[in-house]
Computed example of a mutant assay.
Amino acid sequence: MKEQFLGVDVSSHSYERLKQNVLDDINEKRQSFIVAINPEKILKAQEDQDLKALLNKATYQIPDGVGVLLASKLNKGGIKERVTGIDMLLTLCEQAADNGKSVFLYGAKPGVAEEAKDKLIEQYPNLHVAGVLDGYEKDEQKVIQTINESGADILFVALGSPRQEYWIVDHMKELNVSIFQGVGGSFDVISGRVKRAPALFQRFGVEWLYRLISEPWRIKRQIRLPLFLLKVWRDK
């Protein structure tokens, strides 16, 4: 089930549906690719057809951003809840811990993935983290070999967007992994190096407002939301 905004697909699955689909994909040895979609990415895709094609190659385009929910309402669509990238990561880790599946953390600066691993195991004691590797390893064959030898079912790639998504698409067929997700700066947040917005901001889908308050320079990026909604409305 997908909706489309300015030519970019967005999945309308809930967390519960996604969890079941992902578990089915692992058990049936299907490769699936998860990408987080927000208004900024959709607007960038208007100027970059390669990026648009890349986003639409994903199996699950999760609605990461309140702007996507508003766009769905404008179009009388069925997207009812945000599925943020970091929350999807945590959901998959919980799912892995509960079902005997394993995860691999690839990306971020040296030491960050290790710290994120420790925090994830604290949160999900039954989680099997098959391996970690920072994003500064230059030998691509070593990266692929290390991931494959780990036997991981789920791979989280933190190389920044869209680099991480291009990396996933370019290497999926070489990797013995079922689920791929680009997770941006999630390892930094999970490790505690970067503070996430307080729960109240998360609950109301206004993490962007917290980031704007704490990092006013983001104003140029945030004012693109009204532009996005205007384009969606015109495109109806």
Score class of each variant (00 low, 15 high):
His13Trp: 14
Arg17Ile: 13
Ile26Pro: 03
Val35Trp: 00
Lys41Ser: 11
Ala45Pro: 01
Leu51Thr: 01
Leu51Phe: 11
Ala53Thr: 15
Leu54Gln: 05
Asn56Arg: 12
Asn56Pro: 07
Tyr60Arg: 01
Val66Glu: 14
Leu69Gln: 10
Leu74Asn: 08
Gly78Pro: 07
Ile79Ser: 05
Ile79His: 06
Cys93Trp: 01
Ala96Ile: 11
Ala97Gly: 02
Gly100Thr: 05
Ser102Ala: 04
Ser102Met: 10
Lys109Ala: 14
Pro110Asn: 10
Gly111Arg: 04
Val112Met: 02
Ala113Ser: 10
Glu114Gln: 06
Glu114Trp: 06
Asp118Met: 10
Ile121Met: 13
Leu127Asn: 08
His128Trp: 07
Val129Ala: 00
Ala130Gln: 00
Gly135Ala: 02
Tyr136Glu: 10
Tyr136Val: 07
Asp139Asn: 15
Thr146Ala: 13
Asp153Leu: 10
Ile154Ser: 00
Leu155Pro: 00
Arg163His: 13
Gln164Ala: 08
Val169Ile: 15
His171Val: 10
Leu175Asn: 02
Val177Trp: 00
Gln181Ala: 01
Asp188Ile: 05
Val189Cys: 00
Ile190Asn: 01
Ala197Asn: 06
Ala199Lys: 12
Leu200Phe: 12
Gly205Thr: 13
Gly205Phe: 13
Glu207Gly: 10
Trp208Val: 02
Arg218Leu: 14
Arg218Ile: 13
Arg221Thr: 05
Pro226Cys: 07
Pro226Arg: 11
Leu230Glu: 13
Trp233Tyr: 12
Asp235Ala: 08
Asp235Tyr: 09
